[in-house]
């Protein structure tokens, strides 16, 4: 019963936090410099991780599916099957989960410790709006950067997949990507890019929400970082589910 109450309370507060973001994001003055700095930090922090996991995903997925496809004599469909799986679903979701861990926790911990050491209060009393400077920039940066990271991850994963096909099935670069692009449609690409924006938004939102409302004391900072990751990862799946439902309506998958 208590758990249910906390759940609804938290959902309500998170929605209010999101509402405040939309209220303040279009208001002057814009903290453009800080926004760009955050974009750089987010991209820079996660790029390596995203590339490594993307590459491994491509390799593993191809290695695992290959034997089954061969049993059906359908090796020719490998590039399009694996490629579309990566672009539609696996690339965005894996990247979002990695970023929920990496970006969500670092935003949560950073804002949490700023809260605990009264840095946010200090901003407020100097007549600056800390929500605008800290929260709006971080949520916007995460929203803008996640699609970029997803595209990187997709490209690297496809490269990994191609390498396996090349070694095991002697498929040439031209053939692999020729087959892939023949089957790839905008209905595969569009929803996945659009949902990446939403993944970025929820990761930034939850990280900021948890950090900004962190409890006093150093344990509050740890808790903020930890619960940011848990909540962001869960929301990524929920957003993914909703995205699939909606694109099903639009594109009749």
């Amino acid at each position: 019963m208590n758990g249910l109450r906390t759940y609804f309370l938290e959902t309500g507060q998170l929605s209010l936090f999101a509402f405040r973001y939309f209220k303040e994001v279009f208001k002057m003055p814009f903290e453009t410099k800080e926004l760009l700095r955050q974009c750089f930090l987010i991209g820079n922090k996660s790029l390596f991780l995203v590339i490594v996991t993307g590459f491994i995903m491509g390799l593993v997925l191809t290695l695992q599916t290959r034997p089954t496809m061969m049993d059906f004599g359908a090796e020719a469909y490998m590039p399009s099957m694996v490629g579309i799986a990566i672009i539609r679903e696996i690339g965005p979701v894996i990247t979002a989960l990695i970023c929920a861990g990496k970006i969500g926790s670092s935003i949560g911990a950073e804002l949490g410790s700023m809260k605990v050491t009264e840095q946010i209060d200090a901003m407020e009393v100097s007549g600056t709006n800390p929500f605008k400077y800290l929260v709006v920039t971080r949520i916007s940066a995460a929203t803008l950067m996640l699609p970029v990271l997803v595209i990187f991850a997709d490209a690297i994963a496809l490269l990994g997949s191609f390498l396996v096909e090349n070694v095991k099935g002697h498929v040439s670069f031209q053939l692999y990507f020729g087959v892939l692009f023949e089957h790839l449609e905008f209905s595969d690409l569009n929803p996945s890019v659009i949902k990446s924006f939403f993944f970025g938004f929820v990761i930034g939102l939850v990280g900021c929400y948890k950090g900004y409302n962190s409890k006093k004391g150093t344990s509050g900072v740890g808790l903020a970082a930890n619960s940011a990751v848990v909540m962001a990862s869960m929301l990524v799946f929920i957003v993914d589910f909703i995205a699939v439902l909606i694109s099903d309506i639009f594109y009749n998958l």
Partner: peptide, 20 residues
């Protein structure tokens, strides 16, 4: 309020410097 705040300085118990 923001206008008044610029005329009132506040020194926090823990200094509260922006550590980044």
């Amino acid at each position: 309020l923001d206008k008044i705040r610029t005329q009132v300085g506040f020194l926090f118990q823990g200094s509260a410097l922006y550590d980044s």
